[in-house]
């Protein structure tokens, strides 16, 4: 699975964590600094502990599950500056939105062509609402 980080194909990077956030909580906050979470996790708790983590992987079990978008947004709003990695059903047609809400790393689904994926960042240059990327609304720039 190719990983895109900071809008480039990444050749060296930390593996996607397998440790679930809920287990990390019970193991004790110093057990690891990277977790895997999804929409079923306790978001307020994740927001509270995020500063202890260098990477939070948010899982999209199916592309229809849009909770990860709000989770990333709220993590960035809370000031989280670590890596937010999208994993699971991650495909080029959602990459631009994911980036806008605060994901900065993307573990692509196996069928995705990396070159094509990279071309999708900034596919739509006009934004009508503010988001975690600090852009928009375009007309108010």
């Amino acid at each position: 699975m190719a990983l895109i980080k900071d809008q480039q194909l990444s050749l060296e990077h930390a593996a996607t964590p397998e440790l679930r956030f809920s287990d990390w909580l019970s193991d004790g906050p110093n057990s690891a600094d990277a977790v895997l979470a999804n929409g079923d996790d306790d978001l307020p708790s994740l927001l509270t502990h995020a500063s202890k983590l260098s990477m939070i992987a948010l899982e999209f079990d199916t592309f229809a599950d849009g909770r990860g978008f709000s989770m990333a947004r709220m993590l960035r709003r809370a000031g989280y500056q670590g890596e937010i990695r999208a994993v699971g059903d991650v495909a080029m047609d959602r990459i631009d939105f994911m980036q806008r809400v605060g994901f900065n790393a993307f573990e692509l689904r196996d069928d995705q062509d990396v070159t094509q994926v990279l071309s999708k960042f900034g596919e739509v240059t006009v934004h009508f609402q503010p988001s975690a990327d600090g852009k928009g609304p375009s007309y108010m720039a």
Partner: peptide, 14 residues
């Protein structure tokens, strides 16, 4: 309309 158009966070609602 403008705010809701291509809103990145709300394209995959329930």
């Amino acid at each position: 309309r403008q705010w809701s158009s291509l809103h990145p966070e709300f394209a995959y609602l329930p």
